[in-house]
């Protein structure tokens, strides 16, 4: 039996401020507004994600495009064709059919992208997230070469975003407004977590497949259920993508193909992702990845 704790209580307890600024580069360009989140004991949060693939059917059951991607795009105003969390359909090993794998940035603890950035525009925070400072990024795309998860997106042209993004104050934690010639990716929603809310993707998943939480307190939630991360991972044969590369991702997967929500692996295909405001923007050209 898992002990159930309200997710609000869990996340709110983290709002007690950790005093550390989120790394020099962030402080330098952002006037150090953002602060690392800490537990009540003064320890740093170590954000992590667990994605239960047994519950992911690529939103086949609701005949919609994957809701995590849709919510992420609408929450972050991610320009087309960026899917910061992308639901890949990959063939199952050893049996017929496919599985759906929602793939956000893996927030590697030995992140190749952080290593190669020549100006420190991509940086790791003390909370273990990997962020991009688009005000500093020079657009050399060395990080895109280094990332082994295809999780980095370049603004090749003028990014198409709804007009309200122009009024947002820029922060690497939400990356709006997007800047042409710079790289973007999933930021793990640390601003949302500090405010006691789950990332857009976790909130939107109709089956509660995405758990988000803190390795330090060893707890994660999908919004309706709280799990002890270490036990949850151990009991369910969890793995991480391309673990043998030594990148040490913060995103864990529990193997499956949507069987918990009644999907047959041989039912393939999903609805295409949409960018709802695209048609309202004049002039901005989307591109293909």
């Amino acid at each position: 039996m898992r002990k159930v704790i309200g997710r609000r209580a869990l996340l709110r307890s983290g709002m007690a401020a950790g005093a550390l600024a989120v790394g020099g580069s962030l402080a330098a360009s952002q006037g150090s507004k953002a602060q690392a989140a800490g537990t009540s004991g003064g320890r740093l949060r170590r954000w992590a994600m667990v994605i239960d693939l047994r519950k992911c059917d690529g939103c086949q059951s609701i005949s919609q495009p994957p809701q995590c991607t849709e919510a992420c795009i609408q929450g972050h105003f991610a320009p087309e064709p960026m899917q910061w969390i992308q639901v890949y359909e990959s063939p199952l090993e050893g049996q017929a059919g496919t599985q759906f794998v929602p793939t956000p940035c893996q927030h590697c603890q030995n992140a190749p992208c952080v290593n190669v950035c020549p100006v420190g525009a991509t940086f790791a925070t003390p909370e273990g997230t990997v962020l991009i400072d688009q005000m500093r990024c020079i657009g050399c795309r060395l990080c895109m070469e280094a990332c082994m998860y295809d999780r980095r997106f370049f603004n090749w042209g003028t990014p198409a975003q709804p007009p309200q993004t122009l009024f947002l104050e820029y922060s690497p934690e939400h990356q709006d407004p997007a800047i042409r010639g710079t790289v973007m990716k999933c930021d793990f929603c640390p601003d949302m977590a500090r405010a006691g809310r789950l990332p857009y993707c976790a909130q939107a998943c109709p089956h509660g497949a995405i758990y988000y939480g803190d390795l330090e307190e060893d707890l994660a939630t999908n919004g309706s259920e709280v799990v002890k991360i270490s036990r949850f991972l151990a009991e369910n044969n969890a793995y991480r993508l391309k673990e043998d590369l030594g990148t040490k991702p913060r995103v864990h997967y529990i193997p499956g193909h949507g069987e918990a929500v009644g999907r047959m692996p041989t039912t393939t295909g999903r609805k295409a992702t949409t960018w709802p405001w695209q048609k309202t923007i004049g002039g901005a050209l989307p591109w293909q990845r």
């Binding site: 370049f154 603004n155 090749w156």
Partner: peptide, 10 residues
Amino acid sequence: NGLIVTGMRD
């Protein structure tokens, strides 16, 4: 126009 005028993409 940005690097969209090249053949390079993500």
